[in-house]
Simulated scan of single mutants.
Amino acid sequence: MSIADGEIQIDGGEHSTQTTLQDTLTLLPPHRDAKGWCDPVGSKSTYTALYFDPVLIGEALEQYRGAEIEPVLYGRDPALVGTMKKISDVARSGGDQLYADQLCILAAIEALGLRSILKPIKGGLSAKQLACAKDFLHEHQARPISLAELAAHVGLSRHHLTRAFTTSTGKPPFRYLAELRVERAIGLLVNSDQSIAAVAKACGFGDDGNMRRVMQQLLGVGPRQVRQTR
């Protein structure tokens, strides 16, 4: 996004007349406003707006409570840009809910500058908690599963579950679920005559496009190539 001319100021804070805004971040904490004007360039410009609900963020990231969030005006953060592009891709493709939830938590950590205040979670899940999480993912893999639902089932916050599950298994919950679904899809593609679309739906991918994308990521081949191995 670029503008020919303009200026903006956050109440009681930074002021900018920057005109090249591509891949920049502006963060407004609660009760802070930004005012300004701009003369847009003729070409089409787009932007993505995220709203961080303090209640939901507080539930997902215990360490957020009480943290002082400073305003940011046209900051640059390559890690956040990468995360936002992934969120955009998932939103367009209708990808997995569990993956989308974890990306949103990651975006919150990056956008709110919480990397430095997040305390590492030592150790993983207990054997009982891990079995509870895995059993839930196995049992419900054929339908959309949200991170909030999985965390509530195990009895942990979303952030704690994600980090402890990853410590215990070496992979985040969405990756574990994706591998479960791919394993089941391979069995159906090889051993049944169901259409690829039907297999995708039966395995929780939603549609064959999502199944093809995940298989390409994990296996390097798509469902048609898997079926040809029969």
Rank of each mutant, 00 (worst) to 15 (best):
S146T: 14
L125H: 00
A133V: 09
Y176A: 06
L177A: 06
R184P: 00
H153I: 09
H159E: 07
A152Y: 10
G113M: 02
C132I: 05
L188K: 02
P120Q: 15
A108M: 09
A185W: 02
E183I: 14
L189D: 00
E183C: 07
S146F: 03
E139A: 12
D101A: 01
C104Q: 03
L112I: 06
A131R: 11
L106A: 13
S146C: 05
R115H: 13
S168Y: 08
L189G: 01
E179N: 05
A152C: 15
F174P: 04
V182I: 15
Q102S: 10
L147K: 02
A142N: 11
A127K: 13
R143H: 15
H160W: 04
R184T: 02
E149G: 10
I105N: 03
A108P: 05
L103Y: 03
L125S: 06
G124R: 06
L118T: 01
L147N: 07
P172Q: 13
G113K: 02
C132V: 09
S168H: 06
L189Y: 12
R175W: 07
G170L: 05
C132F: 05
L161V: 15
I109Y: 06
T166R: 03
E183H: 12
S168D: 09
A142D: 07
D193A: 12
S126C: 10
A107E: 08
C104V: 03
A148K: 08
K171Q: 11
K128D: 11
L147T: 00
L150R: 04
L106D: 05
A178P: 01
K171F: 09
E110G: 01
S116I: 06
G155K: 04
E110R: 09
A107T: 01
P144K: 09
T166C: 04
A127T: 12
E139Y: 08
G124Q: 10
L150V: 11
A131K: 13
I186L: 05
L150E: 00
H153D: 12
L106Y: 05
L106Q: 09
E139Q: 14
P173K: 04
A151N: 05
Q102E: 10
L147Q: 07
R158D: 08
P172A: 15
L150H: 03
S126G: 14
L130V: 12
I109C: 13
G124N: 09
R158T: 10
L188E: 07
N191W: 08
T166D: 02
A148R: 03
I186Y: 02
R163G: 05
L118Y: 04
I105Q: 08
N191I: 00
L188W: 06
R184F: 01
A127S: 13
E183T: 14
G187Y: 02
E139P: 04
R184E: 12
A151H: 05
V190H: 11
I186W: 01
L125W: 04
A164C: 15
E139S: 12
A111R: 04
G113V: 03
E149D: 11
R184D: 02
A107W: 00
L180F: 14
R184I: 06
P144V: 15
H159F: 11
D101Q: 00
S116F: 12
Q129R: 06
A142W: 04
L114F: 13
V154W: 04
P120K: 15
A111F: 07
